[in-house]
């Protein structure tokens, strides 16, 4: 709990870090161009359930982003994983972005949406004690619409081999990606829930990684 005394002290400490940029650079990621509405959801929820419903609504921003990964972190595990090449000329809508991972790091996310299903690639640039840095993980998932609130949730599951000295020890790691988009904004936010064990996507997460940034149409 942050009491007023904390505020004062934090303000003083922050002053010490002004030159280093403390308190800056934390804003939401900036879209590269203005988004365009493609959604037709009118989201008119009433208690008597008389609202306009568009079950296949999947807002997709129209901006373009070309991620250029710079994988600088050194893998901390002695595992062998084969990076999967990016699929091209496949049906569906592709989105990609380099999202901030726990603020200091990044994750490249690529999603291809076909109807309600999606395939996804996730590449962490830092191991975070849960996966091998710089290695793309491939997974599958879904698009979940919440038309009454004009929001969409992208979900995908991944599996990573055990990571030495990681949070799951010798167990394989299951990762659950979730990203929420409001309306047609480029900004998405969510995270990666990390569960120990193969094909494990519930229980108490071993770690919750946080993701935020722009995920735009390729």
């Amino acid at each position: 709990m942050k009491r007023p005394s904390f505020q004062v002290r934090l303000g003083l400490v922050c002053l010490l870090f002004v030159a280093a940029g403390c308190g800056g650079g934390n804003g939401a990621a900036t879209p590269t161009s203005s988004p365009t509405f493609t959604s037709t959801a009118t989201a008119t929820l009433t208690p008597t359930a008389t609202f306009t419903y568009t079950p296949t609504n999947t807002p997709i921003p129209t901006t373009t982003a070309t991620p250029t990964p710079t994988r600088t972190s050194i893998p901390t595990a002695t595992v062998t994983s084969t990076p999967t090449p990016t699929a091209t000329r496949l049906p569906g809508v592709e989105m990609a972005g380099r999202l901030d991972l726990d603020i200091r790091w990044s994750a490249d996310v690529e999603i291809r949406v076909v109807g309600k299903n999606l395939t996804a690639m996730l590449t962490l640039n830092d191991a975070r004690e849960v996966a091998v840095a710089g290695v793309a993980l491939e997974g599958m998932g879904n698009v979940h619409d919440f038309p009454e609130v004009d929001a969409v949730l992208y979900t995908a599951r991944f599996t990573s081999p055990p990571v030495a000295d990681g949070r799951c020890g010798a167990q394989p790691v299951s990762l659950s990606l979730t990203l929420l988009r409001r309306g047609t904004n480029d900004h998405v936010a969510g995270g990666v829930a990390v569960y120990c064990g193969a094909n494990t996507n519930s229980g108490t997460a071993a770690r919750m990684l946080r993701l935020a940034g722009s995920l735009t149409a390729k």
């Binding site: 949730l153 979900t155 659950s176 979730t178 969510g190 995270g191």
Partner: peptide, 15 residues
Amino acid sequence: EYGIGDATEALRIAT
């Protein structure tokens, strides 16, 4: 982002 990330995972389990 902690407040968002835990909520979206809860949302995923529910959906």
